[in-house]
Amino acid sequence: MSTPYIHALAPVMVEKLKRVETNRPGTATELQAVLEGIRVLENLVSMGEELHRVQLLALLVPTLVSYLLDEHAFSSAPSASKGLHDFALQNLMRIGPLYPAAFKTVIGAAPELKTRLESAIRANQASSKAKAAALLAQPAVQAAPTIKLKTSFF
């Protein structure tokens, strides 16, 4: 697909996806539709020329960051919103290393994006550490042996 088509299609996709920030998906079907829209936009970014990567990421990254929940809202959010948050965070963490220079340019141009992303990453890491600690704290349950000896040697 040539760049003019990408530049024409990307803003339309972003406009639809931006509406999700205020009107979060309530069902699994609505969530799936949003996730597919994000995947389409990601494909447009990957298909775009390197020269225009910053402009395309400037559409995608703020959209994904807008889906991130703060740590206080996360615990009470519906499962579809949590799923959207997790998907957005994972994609942002994948996109950064994939297009490092363009990603830094986009994030550096908007300090509020950087702050919100860093906050979500810290909350995610704290949650992961808490889950790991909870797993380690659980006592190991010894399973009873399944084979019992019936013969005594004494």
Rank of each mutant, 00 (worst) to 15 (best):
T22K: 14
T22L: 08
T22D: 11
N23S: 14
R24F: 08
R24M: 12
P25Y: 00
G26C: 03
G26F: 01
G26Y: 02
G26P: 00
T27G: 06
A28M: 11
A28K: 12
A28P: 04
T29K: 10
T29W: 02
L31W: 01
L31D: 02
Q32E: 12
Q32D: 14
A33V: 13
V34Q: 00
L35G: 01
L35D: 09
E36S: 13
I38G: 01
I38R: 00
I38N: 02
R39P: 00
V40D: 10
V40G: 08
V40A: 12
L41W: 05
L41F: 08
L41K: 03
L41M: 15
E42N: 04
E42A: 06
L44D: 07
V45S: 05
V45T: 12
V45H: 03
V45L: 04
M47R: 13
M47S: 14
M47Q: 14
M47T: 10
G48V: 05
E49P: 08
E49N: 15
E50T: 14
E50H: 12
E50G: 12
E50A: 15
L51I: 09
H52P: 00
H52V: 15
R53V: 14
R53Y: 01
R53P: 02
R53E: 08
R53Q: 14
R53A: 10
R53N: 09
V54I: 13
V54P: 00
Q55D: 14
Q55G: 13
Q55W: 09
L56C: 04
L56W: 02
L56D: 02
A58T: 12
A58G: 15
A58D: 15
A58E: 10
A58V: 03
A58L: 00
L59C: 14
L60I: 03
V61R: 05
V61S: 04
V61I: 15
P62T: 03
L64E: 01
L64G: 01
S66W: 11
S66E: 09
S66C: 07
S66R: 04
Y67S: 09
Y67E: 08
L68N: 05
L68A: 10
L69C: 09
L69R: 04
D70F: 07
D70C: 02
E71T: 14
A73G: 15
A73H: 14
S75K: 15
S75G: 12
S75F: 13
S76W: 06
S76F: 10
S76H: 10
A77R: 08
A77W: 09
S79W: 10
A80N: 02
A80V: 06
S81P: 08
S81T: 03
G83F: 01
G83D: 12
G83V: 02
G83R: 05
L84G: 06
